[in-house]
Design a protein around this nucleic acid. Sequence first.
DNA 1: TACCCCATGTAATCAGTTACATGATTAT
DNA 2: ATAATCATGTAACTGATTACATGGGGTA
Lengths: 177, 177
Amino acid sequence: MGSNLNATAASLLGFLHEGPMTGWDLVATAQERIGDFWSLNQSQVYRELARMAETGLVVAGERGTRDKQPYSITEAGRQEFLEWMRRMPGAETIRFPLLLTLAFGRFLSPSTLSLIVGKHRALHAERLEKYRDQRVEMEKAGQLDDFASATLDFGLTYEQTVLDWFDRLPLTVTGRL
Amino acid sequence: MGSNLNATAASLLGFLHEGPMTGWDLVATAQERIGDFWSLNQSQVYRELARMAETGLVVAGERGTRDKQPYSITEAGRQEFLEWMRRMPGAETIRFPLLLTLAFGRFLSPSTLSLIVGKHRALHAERLEKYRDQRVEMEKAGQLDDFASATLDFGLTYEQTVLDWFDRLPLTVTGRL
DNA sequence: TACCCCATGTAATCAGTTACATGATTAT
DNA sequence: ATAATCATGTAACTGATTACATGGGGTA
């Protein structure tokens, strides 16, 4: 009763609608497609798959070469997935260590601040570039329906905003730059 | 050796620089001052305080009325805090369930989408308002040094960006709105 | 043959959340 | 008197991270 899937498991069911996949494939797929706003790793995937196999939301197929273990979604899995999808999603959680450091920035020397702020600014510039490339590639591959476009656009606009924020920081915060 | 503080514990040490505080006070202070980018709750605070008392980073003072237990930072605590502060902060983690729902949005009806998107848009509008009020209050109270201003500005610009993003979403994603 | 990547799985630990239990003090 | 708030603490659970162990298969 009452879907008690977690978001990670639900996303795996979502991907399994596209056909049977192994744990390994699911890790790669998830990291590529939702990794920017929902991180997950290999341990979680194998655990959730094992759980869902027990409760009949997925079924394991026959082992292939290299011990490959493909999983398919079941009818029960589809139903649970839809139930999960129809629930009101929770608010996002942001945990931003850099902001913590800045909140206590008065304890740091300008040179340390500068090092830290500079590094993080560069990181966000890289991510913005990555998203731009992704956008181009997805356009080329014709893989950008409105939904994929919306989540990708979130990433783009977020990174752009963060960069602008960096560039507005006063010298007292950036150390110098 | 080598600071193995976590960010939550480190932030408690940061606040204890302002004077002895009880666990209760620390919960309130942290939620108010860093809660928007570093959530923590009561259980964690009492646990971290107990741990840090064991390792001598803080010391418990005498119990007051209502069993109040004030903690003070020690010299060792100050050193560990500084060590933690000087480390390169990790990248932020964002876990955004709404984007997960949208990534699989093709499984939802327009009316469900509309309900979900509308609710979340409203939530962000509220948060933007809250930050604006906070800004005004902090200005009045003269509590906005450059560091506090920078983190608050991050919240403001983030929420504004998210709202703008909502307003750019196509009808296929918003259901209608 | 040796090396790298594919692929599955487990163990251990830490962090975060929720819920509960208990009691003191203040305000109504 | 009693209700609300202050205050500390514990238990149970879930989720996330890291590391390790193991071995198959492709390729240089």
